[in-house]
């Protein structure tokens, strides 16, 4: 398990424990964190699980695949620390990770 903090656009923090091997998206959605839609169920095919990774953590996460890059092109208001949360598998090293959610996924 890793404790991950999701901060919604209104500044509210939700700390969620996510099993190792699950995606950040799954952990957030199952625990009712609002602001991640994940329309496609985690297949890197919809760009509605867009999150911003805390700058202190961006370098330590596995890099984006081309498909994730292509999908991020469809997310709203992206920045260099934008990721699709369905593409990040949780590892024990991610304990303490902070991610921020955009205003909207659509």
């Amino acid at each position: 398990m890793a404790k991950i903090t999701f901060i919604t656009h209104d500044g509210k923090a939700h700390v969620v424990e996510i099993a190792v091997g699950w995606s950040l998206m799954e952990g957030a959605v199952k625990n009712g964190v609002l602001g991640i839609d994940a329309d496609c169920g985690g297949a890197c095919a919809c760009a509605t699980c867009h999150v911003y990774i805390d700058p202190a953590w961006t370098a330590s996460l596995p890099p984006k695949a081309d498909t994730e890059e292509a999908m991020l092109d469809f997310a709203l208001v992206t920045s260099p620390n934008s990721r699709l949360s369905c593409q990040i598998r949780v590892t024990s090293d991610m304990d303490g990770l902070i991610v921020r959610l955009p205003v909207s996924q659509h």
Partner: peptide, 9 residues
């Protein structure tokens, strides 16, 4: 992993 929401939710 099929379950849509956690018990906690």
């Amino acid at each position: 992993r099929l379950f849509l929401k956690s018990d906690q939710f």
